[in-house]
Amino acid sequence: MKLLIDIKNFILIIYNHRHAIYELTKRDFESQYKSTYLGMIWGFLHPVTYIMVVLLVFTIGLRSPASRNGIPFVIFLISGMIPWQFFSTTLSGVTRVINSHSYLIKKGDLSLAILHIARILSNLVTHIALVIICVFIAWAYGYIPGIQTFQLIYYIFAMSVLLLGSGWITSSTSLFIEDIANLVTVSIQFGFWLTPIIWDITIVPTKYRWILKLNPVCYIIIGYRDSLFNGPPFWVHIHETLYFWGVTMIILVAGAVIFRRLKPHFGEVI
C-alpha cells in the first residue's frame, strides 16, 4: 500500500516538474555538444567509429565468420552495439549526475531524482535516432520492418527503467564511497564481453545459458535483435520477461529507498 502511495507521489513529482525535466534534458543535450564545431554529429560519430573499429578487428583481423546465427555480422554487431552503447554511456552518466549538478544542492529542497530522468531522456534522443538508422540498415539487408519492429519501444522503455533504478543507486552511493563510480566503469568493461553483443548466445551450451541470462542487459540485447530481425515477440520469452521485470523492479525500489535515505546527507558530502 505504502509502495503504491510512493509510486503515485513519484508520478506527481514528475508531473509537477515536467518543465524542469524538459529544461534539464534540453540543457543536458545541448551541453554535450555545445562548444564543439561538429556539434550533434559527435553523438553519431562516436558510436559509428566504435562499431567500425570492432567490425574491422573481427572481420579482417580475426577473420570471424561472416554471419551469426544466420544474420550478417555487420548488422548483428550494430544491433548489439547500439543498445549497449546507450546503456553504458547512460549508466556512467547517471552515476555522476549528482556530482555534475552539485551546484543545485545548495539551492535547497529540490527533487534531485528527476536529474536521472533528464539524463536518460537526453541520451535517448541520439539513441532513438541511431535505432531508426539501424532499422533502415536492417531493411537494406532484407529484414523488412513490420509489427515486431515496434517492440523496440518496449525494450527502450525497459532499458530506461533499469537505468533509472541503477542510476539512483550508483549516483547516491558513489557520493559517499567514490569507489562505486570506478566499480561501475569496470563493470561496464566486463559487461561488454559478458553480454552477447559481438557473439551470439547460441554458441553457449544450452545448460549454461541461464547463467548469461541472469544479466538483465542480455534480455534487452536479445530483444533488440528479435525486433529487428523478425524474431519472436517478447511474450514468447515469458520466463525471461518475468525475470527481467522482477530484477528491474527490485533495483528500482532499492534505488528509490537508497536514494531517499541518502539524499538528506548530500549537502554534507558535496
Binding site: N16, H17, H19, A20, E23, L24, R27, S31, Y103, L104, K106, K107, G108, D109, L110
Partner: peptide
C-alpha cells in the same frame, strides 16, 4: 524557501545570467 546561501549557489558557472535565471526559476517549479 528561497535561499541565498553562498555566492553563486544554485547556479551553473557555464550558463550565462539569463540562462541561470530561467533555469533556477524552472528548477524551483516555475
Amino acid at each position: 524557501v528561497s535561499a541565498l546561501l553562498e555566492l553563486g549557489s544554485g547556479m551553473n558557472p557555464d550558463y550565462d545570467g539569463i540562462q541561470n535565471i530561467l533555469f533556477g526559476g524552472i528548477m524551483m517549479g516555475f
